[in-house]
Design a protein around this nucleic acid. Structure first.
Lengths: 244, 244
DNA sequence: CTGTCTCGTTGATGCAGATCAAACCTTCCG
DNA sequence: CGGAAGGTTTGATCTGCATCAACGAGACAG
């Protein structure tokens, strides 16, 4: 891995508080790799051998059952993914594939487990990180169970705008079909949902969303910090959080 | 709290490995309380002040948005709940109410946080517990997104049977409307789903489920350890896990 | 420039599941 | 006992969303 990656990783909440000695040893065991787009990095069910750190690019976490597939999360730099499986030394519950060319650093799970037994600060950071991940999935599940698809789309748009500093306009960070899957609907339905939101202050031009009436959108979205909020996941302030 | 509770709690994975000294101190700060049925113990959005430990009874974790409500989990003895909110010192994402009269032990969140900073073994246990909780919610979300309601009901029945040692018959542990909400459907739809499973080896008599054709049920349920499995959540072997 | 490919949109149709309403059944309590 | 209250089931109806099919628009290679 590159030497200039280390300070970036060190900034992550997960690695910020551990001793320099332990951090360096962990980094020594790690290695970086660059993957092309559409490559399956992880297959659900396989043993979890590595903690992954996104340095550049985009990765989709998804799950399959029978012939169906759904997006569980989209990961952007700089953040880690599939921490829990590594900790439990259990099979991955989700698969991962690159959405675009991505550079990823991989840390052997056993080094990780050894380190939080050695370094109490790292243990505390791991606890905090896991609690955040847990709460993030709970929010996802709440959104799915409590809102219909139109409301989920509205809430998504409202949230993205908030994250961009209440911007009246922003560009969707990933393909619409991927967003649709993340939000638990078909691409067709996503398309129709946005169209139906025209009457509630949302316009679209290609990948760009334009909010023409924030109050109206807010009324549909019904934003709720207990669903749409985010605990700081990776040590970034909320305004720059890498969430999709 | 009762003296005889302590060994029960000590058996939990979360508390098993910590030092006796720290365990005793934590227990000293704790207190037990008995609540009647249908009492709201926790309201979502409020600050998380206590880790709760179920000793007797049943508690429903649920969430609301606007005028809607959904069950997120059902907790049975002996296990802890809302660990993550306590750790993050953040607002509860879920509410909790007793389903029946319940005895619950409450540990101040700040003592908890202080303890895993002091006791590395407790920190490691907390990490493992949180990772399990995380994976449990991921499974819940996967089931919701990947299966239709008939399949979720079938998978639920198949799983309960497995947990009871592949029993051909078992009694539903909670009200049907609660189960329906947990499985993400209306009570009416739950009722119809079971009825439609008659042709696939499921019969019902009041609260008792009778599996008349395990192979057939299995074919519908499509059980998958990456959705229906459970990492040991509370240190009980899978066969006696307190899951609902 | 022109075919090909993938993504996105639109329309038509079908179905799963919600909603509404009523009957039934149990539990509980005066 | 009797009657109220809540849970469950059933039927009728409605609708949100999926599915299927077709078409348009960029992106890209030849």
């Amino acid at each position: 891995m590159r030497e200039e990656d280390k300070p970036e990783i060190r900034k992550l909440l997960l690695f910020r508080d551990m001793s320099t000695e332990n951090f360096d040893r962990l980094m020594q065991a790690a290695y970086a790799q660059t993957f092309p787009a559409q490559l399956e990095l992880i297959r659900q069910g396989e043993p979890a051998d590595f903690l992954h750190i996104m340095m550049e690019g985009t990765v989709e976490l998804f799950s399959g059952w029978r012939d169906r597939e759904t997006t569980m999360a989209v990961v952007r730099p700089v953040s880690t993914f599939i921490l829990a499986a590594c900790i439990k030394d259990a099979p991955y519950l989700m698969s991962a594939r690159t959405v675009e060319k991505s550079r990823i650093i991989m840390i052997p799970a056993k080094d990780l487990r050894a380190t939080f037994r050695l370094d109490p600060e790292f243990a505390v950071s791991t606890i905090t990180e896991l609690a955040s991940c847990y709460r993030s999935v709970v929010r996802h599940a709440k959104s799915l169970k409590l809102r219909n698809s139109r409301e989920r789309v509205a809430a998504y748009i409202y949230r993205q705008s908030s994250l961009a500093g209440n911007a009246a306009s922003f560009v969707l960070p990933v393909e619409k079909r991927l967003l649709a899957s993340l939000l638990g609907m078909t691409p067709e339905n996503f398309s129709r949902a946005i169209k139906s939101l025209q009457s509630d202050g949302v316009a679209m031009d290609g990948m760009r969303i334009i909010i023409t009436n924030m109050k109206s959108l807010e009324a549909v979205a019904g934003p709720d910090t207990l669903i749409d909020g985010s605990d700081p996941l990776s040590g970034f302030p909320a305004a720059t959080a890498p969430s999709i």
